[in-house]
Design a binder for these strands. Structure first.
Length: 893
RNA sequence: GGGCGGCUAGCUCAGCUGGUCAGAGCGUCUGGUUUACACCCAGAAGGUCGGGGGUUCGAACCCCUCGCCGCCCACCA
């Protein structure tokens, strides 16, 4: 016999090991029997190789696993391809921190090779963590195909892509302003910059006009939030139509401190409405100024080094000074010169590195860029014409918005952990891009006519560059593998909206460029998990829910079910409490199975759902079919929340609350056809539940699949190999549904009346039923036994005639002698009846009014009108009955 | 500045194309444990569906407007 609860702690590892050993996670498991099976492929969003499972992973991978298991049961050849990402900057940061904590020398002192070796060591140590944790979640990935972005195959793909894009002029080297992270001392892409609002100041400086004053004006006032950059100013710009300044254009100002002459130029960029209308132009330290400077051929004076300390052609006292110290110095000096005109407090938008938190410095350097604009065009078209669809569809808008305004993608990073850029430089600086050094040498020889010393580019590629290739590189590209042929384009990508730009968009671009086909047919966007108050989870806030803790405490199924049922929202508010509720759901199912087992409801291979006779059994058959249809439809639409909801309600509120309760009198009754049929039907319905629930809660269902067969005929195989229920719509029996619905309504009414009885609970008789509606003596008689069970009563007797039509009263021994009148609280009954009468009258009036309305009859759909006619008839009938009941009640009292 | 999402019972949310919904879970309160389940069962209280206006025979659902809240994008000194 089953225990009272499921013990996930002992069962889950055992079950997972069984699955993994069975080979069912591999598509070959299906393909070996059916080589034409429909392929279904997903690539995992690769987690950081040295990371550990957080709640976001739990959500994302639960949803993927649900799809994987669902499609597997549908007989598809499912490949869910796992892997990890080297996560360049993140991993390098972690290891650097470790070095610091251990008091070791920093990476620069250590040298590149030693440092990279150190990261590999860290990867070897911690790299298996997250994949083990995914197993604990139940993820049915094909581990035999696990990949890593830095493994040999993927590295080869990266080099080939780089070389080909370079050949096609879609990758190029350029000197322009980049977002420079002074902490990591690397360039980062626009996406890695986080703008934060901070309280800052705006300083107004006067720049003295060189030469004669104009109309008595001898200075131009500019405003800046970054005074230190003035040392690099190349001009002062004013709007060409600004009447205050047009006459100054062409003149020069003397840049204070730097003591240089710079021109006053006219450009559309300055907004006359803002500030003084005159803007200092620092081409090498501001993105806007860069463009202005470029338009006017101004020299770009770089005045900082890679650590954001002052450098370059500036007064000696500034050399090597940190930018913020320099800011202070500049302000003091300007003030001393009498040129400080104003200081404004204001909120300014300041760019920060998303990893380091350091304030980003626009910095003029040579970097490698991808021509994203060109690659984006077909990627936009692919979504426009539906070759790839987003679910929910709204996200397409976000995708379009970004793709249509895309900027060149800076892909080089001054880091050591990552794919080294396959470019080699000759001594004279000429660059040779090739897949390996030998090819680069050959190219150099061909070009220069002799062998030269080549030096490989020091930089590595942005992590997202290799991730962008993930859907085809993991399938074996550039080799033309069987997998690539079979599984590309992949079927569905499940990921968070926070990486639509970072990842999804770039996969679209690269996939189409190199495979001539979209990388995935559907993108399912999942929400972000937050705490119960909607706050982002973070260690510093201490509101983190660790999925591993949850699995330890409540089991993986509880976590998974929670993830599924909450997944509809964009912000998923999670609390432990909530997960507990879904653990309870598992227990409920477990106990239903336990009940079935106790009553010898064992699966019967010969069972034919089409042949059942009992109303109750025809009803649960119908409900099961409807549920299966709803769950299938929901999963097809990637509506996990709906699927989970439907199952929750079916299992708890239909199967347990009503079917099993109504089945009790039969199961407790005499042996016979009805009892045998009910046993078999209960077992059958439970089986269907296990199948339908398996994708969401694989562990408990697998365990029950095994246990429920203990006393019956042995099952062959695991639930994970079982087929998704294919239930005929013809098994839906509306007559049975109506019958049982009536019964359920009846019992509910009984319970309600009983609880409203105006006597102390202890004196309350077990049950009194008043039927003012379509209740008849015959029906009551027919269902007497079932009602008895439902109300947990010992006996049922028929009532004599009552004021309300039929009355069923039921009593235990102690109250058997009481009369009907004592059972019923007449006052309460009158009030009820009055209320019902009023409601019924209103009903009739409302519907009648509606039907009298010519406009409604003319304009509403005919079936709606017809429906209303029927409703009217029903309402009128109900009203009549109530009136009769009321009349009789009157006579009694 | 642009865009997206939200504002429904104390809390978290359902409510899919306007015509049985004003709903569910949790929490609260009341009552219930001799054999499926107290991780349970039965019941109760609780909401002018953010404000205002409009369209309609009829609006939580459509339109306008206002108000908060959250997120994303944006080069403004």
């Amino acid at each position: 016999m089953l225990d009272k609860t499921f013990d996930p702690k002992s069962a889950e590892p055992r079950l997972y090991a069984t699955w993994e050993a069975s080979g069912t996670f591999r598509p070959e498991h299906v393909l070996s029997r059916d080589s034409h099976a429909t392929p279904f492929c997903m690539v995992i969003p690769p987690p950081n190789v040295t990371g550990s499972l957080h709640i976001g992973h739990a959500l994302n991978n639960t949803l993927q696993d649900i799809l994987a298991r669902y499609h597997r049961m549908r007989g598809h050849a499912v490949l869910w391809l796992p892997g990890t990402d080297h996560a360049g900057i993140a991993t390098q940061m972690v290891v650097e921190r470790q070095l610091a904590a251990e008091g070791n020398v920093g990476r620069r002192e250590m040298g590149r090779d030693a440092f990279v070796e150190r990261i590999w060591a860290w990867k070897a140590q911690s790299g298996g963590t997250i994949t083990q944790q995914l197993r604990r979640l139940g993820a049915s990935c094909d581990w035999s195909r696990e990949r890593f972005t830095l493994d040999e195959g993927l590295s080869r793909a990266v080099r080939k892509v780089f070389v080909e894009l370079h050949k096609a002029n879609l990758i190029y080297r350029d000197k322009r302003l980049v977002n420079w992270d002074p902490h990591f001392q690397t360039a980062i892409s626009d996406l890695e910059v986080e703008t934060r609002e901070v309280q800052g100041k705006m300083w107004h400086f006067a720049y003295p006009l060189e030469g004669e004053p104009i109309d008595g004006v001898s200075e131009i006032v500019i405003a800046t939030t970054r005074p230190e950059t003035m040392l690099g100013d190349g001009a002062v710009a004013v709007h060409p139509d600004d009447p205050r300044y047009t006459r100054f254009v062409g003149r020069q100002v003397r840049l204070p401190i730097a003591d240089r002459l710079i021109p006053i130029i006219a450009d559309e960029y300055p907004d006359p409405e803002k500030g003084s209308g005159a803007v200092k132009i620092t081409g090498a330290h501001d993105f806007n100024d860069f463009q202005v400077a470029a338009r006017h051929g101004l020299s770009m004076i770089s005045i900082m080094d890679e650590r954001a300390r002052m450098a370059g052609p500036i007064p000696e006292r500034y050399l090597g000074v940190d930018r913020y110290a320099a800011r202070k110095m500049v302000v003091e000096e300007i003030e001393a010169l009498g040129l400080l005109r104003q200081i404004e407090e204001r909120v300014i938008a300041q760019p920060h590195g998303d990893r380091s938190g350091a304030v980003i410095e626009p910095y003029l350097t040579d970097q490698w860029y991808v021509d994203a604009k060109t690659l984006a065009a077909p990627a936009i078209a692919a979504v426009e014409d539906g070759r790839t669809v987003f679910e929910p569809k709204n996200w397409e808008k976000t995708y379009f918005e970004w793709m249509r305004n895309i900027e060149p993608w800076c892909i080089s990073r001054q880091l050591w952990w990552g794919h080294r850029i396959p470019a080699w430089y000759a001594p004279d600086g000429e660059v040779f891009v090739a897949e390996d050094e030998a090819s680069a040498k050959a190219a150099a020889r061909a070009k220069l006519g002799r062998d030269v010393e080549l030096r490989q580019d020091e930089d590595v590629l942005d992590t997202w560059f290799s991730s962008a290739l993930w859907p085809f590189s993991t399938l074996g590209w550039p080799n033309e593998t069987q997998d690539l042929k079979r599984f590309y384009p992949t079927s569905t990508l499940v990921t968070g909206f926070d990486i639509i730009f970072f990842w999804v968009a770039r996969m679209m671009m690269m996939g189409i460029q190199f495979m001539d086909e979209v990388p995935f047919q559907r993108v399912v966007i999942n929400g972000l998990v937050r705490d119960e108050r909607g706050q982002k989870m973070s260690k510093s806030k201490g509101n983190v829910i660790d999925p591993l803790d949850v699995i330890d405490d409540l089991g993986a199924d509880a976590l998974r079910f929670s993830m599924a049922i909450l997944s509809g929202a964009r912000d998923i508010k999670l609390s432990k409490n909530r997960i507990e509720g879904y653990r309870n759901f598992g227990t409920k199912l477990w106990n239903a199975a336990r009940f079935c087992q106790m009553n010898e409801c064992t699966p019967d291979a010969a069972y034919d759902p089409a042949a059942v006779k009992e109303t109750l059994n025809r009803w649960i058959r119908s409900e099961t079919v409807k549920t299966a249809q709803a769950v299938s439809a929901a999963l097809d639409a990637a509506d996990f929340a709906e699927a989970a909801n439907v199952l929750y309600r079916f299992v708890w509120n239909v199967f347990c609350d009503w079917y099993l309760e109504l089945a009790k009198p039969i199961l407790n009754g005499d042996e016979g056809r009805a009892k045998a049929e009910t046993r078999a039907t209960a077992a059958w319905a439970l089986d269907q539940i296990l199948r339908l629930l398996h994708p969401i809660s694989p562990f408990i269902t697998e365990e029950l699949w095994d246990k429920t067969a203990e006393f019956g005929p042995r099952r062959d195989g695991l639930l994970i190999e079982a087929k998704w229920p294919a239930l005929s719509g013809e098994w839906i029996d509306e007559a049975a549904t109506a019958e049982i619905d009536w019964l359920i309504g009846l019992v509910s009414e009984v319970r309600s009346i009983r609880s409203e009885m105006n006597v102390p609970p202890s004196a309350r008789p077990p049950l009194v039923l008043v039927g003012a509606g379509p209740l008849t003596q015959e029906r009551l008689k027919r269902n007497r036994d079932r009602l008895c069970t439902l109300a947990r009563l010992e006996a049922v007797r028929e009532a004599p005639a009552t004021p309300h039509g039929a009355v069923l009263f039921v009593a235990g021994e102690a109250t058997a002698a009481l009369s009907v009148a004592e059972y019923i609280d007449l006052a309460a009954e009158k009030a009820r009846l009055a209320k019902a009468l009023a409601a019924a009258e209103q009903d009739v009036a409302r519907i009648a009014r509606k039907l009298d309305n010519a406009d409604f009859v003319a304009r509403a759909p005919p079936e709606v009108v017809e429906e209303n006619r029927e409703k009217l008839a029903e309402a009128e009938a109900a009203l009549e009955k109530l009136k009769a009941a009321a009349a009789r009640l009157k006579t009694v009292s």
